[in-house]
Simulated scan of single mutants.
Amino acid sequence: MARFGSRSGGILNFGDFRGFTRDLVLWNLGAYFLLALLGLASPHGYAVVFDALALTPGLFLHGWIWQIATYPFLHAGILNTAFELLSLWFLGSFLESNHGARWLMEIFAVSALGAGIAAILMALALHAPVTVIGCWGAIFGLLIAFGVLYADTEFMMFPLPMLIKAKYLVAVYMLIALAMLFSTDKVFAFSQLGGALFGYFYIRFAPRRGITTAGSKQYFDWRNRYYRWKRKQAAKKFQVYMKKQNRDVNFDSEGRYVDPDKDPNDRSRWN
């Protein structure tokens, strides 16, 4: 596994375990141990919860739509889970330190969504009764972001004492996923490629500061436009009323009252 984080002596070291990356890892780890304990206490209860939260294309298409959001937090096997969460920590900490927690949250969610959609499509095409779990699809979205945005960044491949550029590591992972399409793990491999594709779409087409930030800005822009329109409408009605009282009042183009006793160039008047 690669080592990511702050650069020291030409090698990228482990990133800080904090922020949304830490929360994401802990959520996944907590879900793993909770289900493990439930399996020991009640195998039947474990089966019910697992079937409800894992992504099963047939159930998803019959209304179990929450599975597209819950399946990344289910994991099988301690070694596979450890490798997933270490990968998530390494990639997430690096990307979060450069783009922020909200950006990381969005690309993780978008990539997980893309991986889930890809898995559903492949399962339907193959008529395969499969169940998809794990966050590898989301991790592939983070991986493609790392490879595209920091293509020439070098880091050490553990345990091999060698440096490799990010773009080459991404190419290796993509080739492995493509090769897996010719194996029995077609759905799993296609979900990884779907996560990578949606991650790529996110970094190419999403606003620089993230979708939610841009959406919030757009919302406040439209809200302010609405308030300005309401103010101008109120100003017009007030002008009509004052004319009936044989008095003239003036408002500017934004619907703000213009005091005739003040200099029109005075910017200190109330807005």
Rank of each mutant, 00 (worst) to 15 (best):
Ala41Asn: 03
Ala125Ile: 00
Ala123Met: 12
Ala125Glu: 04
Tyr46Thr: 14
Ala145Tyr: 01
Leu61Met: 14
Ala128Gly: 05
Ala41Met: 03
Leu163Ala: 11
Gly45Asn: 03
Ile144Ser: 08
Ala171Ser: 06
Ala151His: 14
Val130Phe: 10
Gly39Ser: 11
Phe158Tyr: 10
Leu91Phe: 00
Tyr32Ser: 09
Thr56Phe: 10
Gly77Phe: 07
Leu95His: 05
Cys135Pro: 10
Ala112Trp: 06
Phe108Tyr: 13
Tyr168Thr: 12
His99Trp: 11
Gly58Asn: 12
Val49Asn: 02
Gly114Thr: 02
Trp89Leu: 13
Val110Cys: 08
Leu53Pro: 07
His75Phe: 15
Leu53Thr: 07
Met105Glu: 14
Glu106Asp: 10
Phe140Lys: 11
Gly147Asn: 13
Ile139Pro: 00
Gly77Lys: 08
Ala109Val: 03
Val170Ile: 04
Tyr168Met: 05
Gly114Met: 00
Thr131Asp: 05
Ala171Glu: 07
Lys167Ile: 06
Ala138Tyr: 09
Leu169Glu: 09
Phe90Tyr: 02
Phe94Tyr: 13
Asn80Cys: 10
Phe83Ile: 08
Ile120His: 06
Ala41Tyr: 00
Glu96Gly: 09
Tyr150Lys: 04
Met162Trp: 00
Leu121Lys: 15
Ala36Trp: 04
Arg102Pro: 00
Pro161Ala: 05
Ala109Leu: 15
Val148Met: 14
His99Gln: 09
Ser93His: 06
Ala128Val: 05
Lys167Pro: 01
Leu86Phe: 01
Ala76His: 06
Asn80Tyr: 14
Ile139Ser: 03
Asn98Asp: 01
Phe146Gly: 13
Leu169Arg: 01
Leu74Phe: 12
Met157Asn: 09
Ser42Ala: 09
Gly77Ile: 03
Leu142Trp: 01
Phe33Lys: 02
Ala128Asp: 15
Ala171Asp: 05
Ser111Arg: 04
Trp136Ile: 03
Ala123Trp: 03
Met122Tyr: 08
Ala151Gly: 14
Gly77Leu: 02
Ala76Tyr: 15
Lys167Gly: 00
Phe94Thr: 10
Asn80Glu: 15
Tyr32His: 08
His75Asp: 04
Ala54Gln: 07
Leu74Ala: 03
Ala145Gly: 14
Ile78Gly: 07
Leu121Trp: 06
Met156Cys: 11
His127Tyr: 06
Val132Leu: 15
Gly45Lys: 12
Leu91Pro: 12
Leu142Met: 08
Leu124Met: 12
Gly134Ala: 09
Leu53Asp: 11
Ile65Arg: 14
Val48Trp: 02
Leu40Lys: 12
Val148Asp: 04
Ala76Ile: 15
Gly137Lys: 11
Ala69Pro: 04
Ser87Asp: 07
Trp64Gly: 02
Met105Cys: 14
Thr153Arg: 15
Ala101Gln: 11
Leu104Ser: 05
Met156Asp: 05
Asp51Met: 01
Ile133Val: 03
Leu37Gln: 05
Asp152Val: 02
Phe60Ala: 07
Gly147Tyr: 09
Ile144Leu: 06
Thr131Val: 06
Ile139Trp: 00
Ala166Cys: 08
Ser42Trp: 10
Ser111Lys: 03
Ile117Ser: 11
Ala128Glu: 08
Phe90Pro: 02
Thr153Gly: 03
Ile107Met: 07
Ala125Ser: 06
Ala138Lys: 05
Gly137Pro: 10
Ser42Lys: 07
Leu34Lys: 02
Pro57Gln: 05
Glu84Pro: 01
Leu40Arg: 08
Leu149Pro: 02
His62Glu: 07
Phe73Gly: 01
Leu85Lys: 02
Thr81Arg: 00
Glu84Trp: 06
Tyr71Thr: 10
